[in-house]
Design a protein around this nucleic acid. Structure first.
Lengths: 187, 187
DNA sequence: CAACCCCTATCTAACAATCGGTAGGCAAGA
DNA sequence: TCTTGCCTACCGATTGTTAGATAGGGGTTG
């Protein structure tokens, strides 16, 4: 295992947290998925709180990398915006999982401080990226861009939440289509 | 206490579940808020699962009653739609709490079956009411009304989720305004 | 080259706290 | 006297976390 163990813990922990949240994240179960014992996790992470913070930090870093890759792949900002819901969709396809930011957002009151900071950063990363694309696409006036970006972020996260509790991806797609028809997202 | 105890348990349980979810709902703590001992709860509810199901059932019943009252207060369906986000807003004002449907929706995988049913009913109640108002207001074609209704429900739940993790009601209001400007909600 | 040591990564075993839930008793009103 | 509503006391399971041991690899030293 060695240095790979830490990465394996982060990867499995992310999947577990997306399915069960911070409260449902279980050290023994997580260790079992990685193939080690629970005590061994403490060799890599000082506590459950710090583990969760590391998971959340890695999560927004991966998200940011993916968003930047999407942006660089299109010259049309509207094309980037059309692709934006795909991460959320993929989480549903991949084990009916939730966006980590949404789950931890729900549990926010019971979250340790270091985890809270990473959750906020995740939201900031998404909103900033959306804001830039909205301005490039000239879809809103500059002074409304941030609010509109946050509204889009919230709407898609909400669609994922609702679709998940039906375990039905088709209603996620239907909601995205509705957002497009209504004018919240570009068609 | 007597017959009032059951009602008090339901009321306190709802508030606790809106703040900490099903997993965070604690029998001892809940009993303490009501002024009884944890064991006494089992005189009124057979298990935590049945208690949570009763809380969720009461929740959608109260929601439905409020929605019907809103509808009867306005003759203009758009006026009803404008008032719709207020329940979600009030939960934030009242202790930064989440819609119970959203919290339980996040925890859906770990929910006992009877609770799941009530969560779905809550979503159905909201979507059905929104669908009726949208049709009355002639805001969408009939075949798209349900999808649009669910999209609005999801968007507002998402806005509440995002606003909660900032403990900031003003950004909730800003997102609702954005939805109106974009055309998702009537202005 | 061999003996030594130490660091890394993991283990077993256990602790203390907390959880949902149960058994059985007690008091009061019908 | 029987039912209702609550209690005390406890059980077993699970949780995050810690202490201490062990195995192996790499570097230093004789």
């Amino acid at each position: 295992m060695s240095a790979n163990a830490k990465e394996a813990i982060l990867a499995a922990g992310r999947l577990s947290a997306q399915a069960h949240g911070y409260g449902g994240l279980n050290m023994r179960e997580l260790a079992g998925e990685v193939g080690i014992k629970a005590a061994s996790i403490y060799h890599h992470f000082a506590s459950k709180a710090e583990l969760a913070a590391a998971i959340a930090e890695r999560y927004w870093q991966d998200t940011k990398a993916w968003l930047d890759e999407v942006e660089s792949r299109h010259q049309d900002p509207k094309a980037s915006l059309r692709e934006y819901p795909d991460t959320f969709r993929n989480s549903l396809v991949n084990g009916n999982r939730l966006c980590l930011g949404s789950f931890l957002g729900a549990e926010y009151d019971d979250l340790p401080e270091p985890v809270r900071r990473q959750v906020q950063t995740f939201a900031d990363v998404n909103v900033a990226w959306l804001q830039d694309r909205l301005i490039e696409a000239e879809m809103v006036e500059k002074e409304n861009a941030e609010d509109r970006a946050r509204a889009i972020f919230a709407a898609i996260a909400g669609a994922q939440l609702v679709a998940r509790s039906r375990s039905d991806i088709t209603i996620f797609d239907a909601m995205i289509t509705s957002y497009q028809r209504a004018g919240l997202l570009p068609q």
